[in-house]
Deep mutational scan, measured.
Amino acid sequence: NRLGIIYEIQGMKAVVLTSEGEFLIIRRRKDMKVGQQVSFENEDIYNV
């Protein structure tokens, strides 16, 4: 599992900021809110 803070939500995608200072786009889940810490898997990351 990886951890990140939700920075922005766009439709079915969420932008998270990881503890390494990396911004990633992941698959959104219904319970996500901006500012929330979430765990996610590598499979949830969109390749940009």
Rank of each mutant, 00 (worst) to 15 (best):
Y46R: 08
I25W: 06
L17F: 08
G21L: 04
G35D: 03
Y46T: 10
I9S: 01
N42S: 08
Q37M: 13
L17W: 12
I25T: 09
Q37L: 08
V34I: 10
V48Y: 03
E41N: 10
N42T: 10
I6S: 00
A14F: 08
I25D: 07
I6C: 06
L17S: 06
K30E: 15
K30C: 15
E43W: 02
I25A: 10
I26R: 00
V16L: 03
V38E: 01
L24G: 01
L24K: 04
V16R: 00
A14K: 00
I5A: 04
N42Y: 11
S19A: 10
R29G: 11
K30W: 10
V38G: 01
E22F: 09
E8S: 08
D31G: 14
K33C: 09
R28M: 15
R27A: 12
G11M: 04
K30H: 15
S19Y: 08
E8F: 14
E20R: 04
S39Q: 10
V34F: 03
Q36A: 10
Q36K: 10
Y46Q: 13
L17K: 08
G35Y: 04
V16C: 07
L17Q: 11
G11E: 14
V38R: 02
I25N: 06
R28A: 10
R27P: 07
I25K: 05
K30T: 15
D44V: 01
D31I: 03
S39H: 10
G21D: 05
E41Q: 10
Y7V: 13
L17V: 09
E43T: 04
V16M: 03
D44R: 01
S19Q: 15
D44G: 01
K33G: 04
K33H: 08
D31P: 09
R29T: 14
N1R: 11
I6L: 04
G11F: 11
G4I: 02
V38L: 05
F40T: 03
Q37V: 13
E22D: 11
D44Y: 05
Q36G: 02
V15R: 12
Y46H: 09
Q37N: 08
G35A: 04
L3R: 10
D44S: 01
R27F: 14
R29L: 12
N47D: 13
G21P: 00
G35F: 04
F23I: 14
Y46E: 07
I6M: 01
E20H: 07
N1K: 08
V48N: 13
E43F: 02
V38W: 09
I5Y: 06
G11R: 08
T18D: 05
S19V: 05
K30G: 15
I6K: 00
K30P: 15
E41F: 07
N1S: 12
Y7E: 10
G35C: 12
G21Y: 05
K30Q: 15
E41V: 06
I5R: 06
F23C: 12
Q10F: 14
I6T: 01
Y7N: 08
E43S: 04
N1A: 09
L24C: 06
I6N: 00
V48G: 11
K30F: 05
N47C: 15
R2W: 08
E8Q: 09
N47I: 11
E20K: 03
E41C: 10
T18M: 03
M12N: 15
G21F: 04
K13H: 13
R29H: 14
V34S: 02
N47G: 13
S39D: 10
R27N: 14
S39P: 04
I45Y: 04
I6G: 00
E41G: 09
F40Y: 06
E20P: 03
M32P: 01
E41Y: 06
K30V: 15
F23Q: 08
N47A: 08
R29N: 13
L17C: 05
M32Y: 15
Y7F: 08
K13T: 10
I9C: 06
G35I: 00
V16Q: 00
V16N: 00
G4Q: 01
I5P: 00
R2V: 03
R29V: 11
K33P: 01
Q36R: 10
G4M: 02
R27K: 12
Q37P: 10
G35W: 03
Y7W: 14
I45Q: 04
R2A: 03
I45L: 06
I45H: 03
Y46G: 13
F40I: 06
D44N: 02
V15F: 09
E20Y: 06
R28H: 15
R2K: 12
R28G: 15
M12P: 15
Y46P: 07
Q37Y: 07
S39W: 07
M12Q: 14
R28L: 15
E20C: 10
N42M: 09
M32N: 03
E22K: 05
L24S: 03
E20D: 11
F40G: 01
G11Q: 10
D31R: 08
Q37R: 10
A14M: 07
Q36N: 11
D31M: 08
L17P: 00
G35T: 02
Q37I: 11
E22P: 02
T18E: 02
L17R: 11
M32Q: 09
L3I: 14
R2N: 09
N42P: 07
M12T: 14
D44Q: 02
E20A: 09
V38D: 00
E22I: 11
R27Y: 13
E22R: 05
E43N: 05
I5N: 04
D31E: 14
N42W: 12
K33I: 04
M12K: 10
S19E: 10
L24R: 03
R27Q: 07
V16G: 01
D31N: 05
V15E: 03
S19K: 10
I5W: 11
E43P: 02
F40E: 02
I5D: 02
G21S: 04
F23W: 15
L24A: 07
Q10Y: 12
I26F: 01
I25P: 05
V16A: 03
I5S: 03
R27G: 10
E20S: 12
V38P: 00
I6P: 00
T18C: 05
F40A: 03
Q10W: 15
L3E: 08
R29C: 12
N1V: 13
E22C: 13
V48C: 15
L3H: 11
A14I: 07
S19W: 06
T18V: 06
E22L: 07
L3V: 11
Y46K: 11
R2S: 07
I26V: 07
I6E: 00
E20M: 05
F40V: 03
F23S: 06
N1Y: 13
K33Y: 08
R27D: 08
I25H: 06
E22M: 09
N1M: 10
I45A: 07
D31T: 13
I25V: 14
I25Y: 06
E8H: 14
E43I: 02
E8R: 10
V34K: 13
I6Y: 01
I25G: 05
A14W: 05
E8M: 11
D31Q: 13
I25C: 13
F40R: 01
V48E: 13
I9Q: 02
E41P: 08
F23A: 04
E43Q: 03
I26S: 00
R28P: 09
G11D: 13
G4A: 05
I9K: 01
G4Y: 03
D44K: 02
V15P: 00
I9W: 03
G21E: 05
E22N: 08
M12H: 15
K33E: 05
V16E: 00
F40N: 01
K13F: 13
L17D: 01
M32C: 04
V48F: 04
G35V: 00
N47R: 03
N42H: 11
V48S: 13
D44F: 05
I9L: 07
R2H: 06
M12A: 13
V16S: 00
E41D: 09
T18Q: 02
K33F: 05
E43Y: 02
K13S: 11
V48L: 04
I25M: 08
L24H: 05
N1Q: 13
I26N: 00
M32W: 14
Q37T: 14
G11P: 10
Q37G: 07
I5V: 13
L3Y: 13
R2C: 11
M12Y: 14
G21T: 02
K33Q: 07
K13V: 04
M12C: 15
L17A: 05
F40C: 02
E41I: 08
K33R: 07
E8V: 13
E8W: 14
N47P: 08
N47T: 10
Y7R: 13
G35H: 07
R28W: 15
V38F: 04
I26C: 02
G35Q: 03
G4N: 02
G11S: 10
V48A: 08
S39Y: 11
Q37D: 05
V16D: 00
D31S: 14
E22V: 10
G4D: 02
R2T: 06
V16T: 02
I26L: 07
R27T: 14
S19H: 09
V34D: 02
G4F: 02
Q10S: 15
F23V: 13
K33T: 05
I5L: 11
Q36P: 00
A14G: 02
M32E: 03
A14L: 04
D44C: 09
D31Y: 14
N47E: 14
K33A: 06
E43K: 11
T18L: 04
E43R: 02
R2D: 03
I45T: 01
I9M: 12
I25L: 13
F23T: 11
R28C: 15
T18H: 01
N47F: 08
F40H: 01
L3W: 12
K30D: 15
V15S: 10
D31A: 08
V34G: 02
I45D: 05
M12W: 12
K13P: 00
L17T: 09
Y7D: 03
I5F: 11
V38Q: 02
Q37F: 09
N42E: 14
V48W: 04
Y7M: 12
F23G: 01
N47W: 12
E20V: 05
K13A: 05
I25S: 11
Y7I: 14
Q10R: 11
S19D: 10
I9D: 01
Q36F: 09
V34E: 03
G35N: 04
V38H: 05
M12R: 14
N1W: 07
I6D: 00
E8L: 13
G21Q: 03
S19R: 11
K33D: 05
A14P: 00
L17M: 13
A14Y: 11
N1L: 15
E43C: 09
D44L: 02
Q10K: 10
V16P: 00
N42V: 10
G4E: 01
N1T: 14
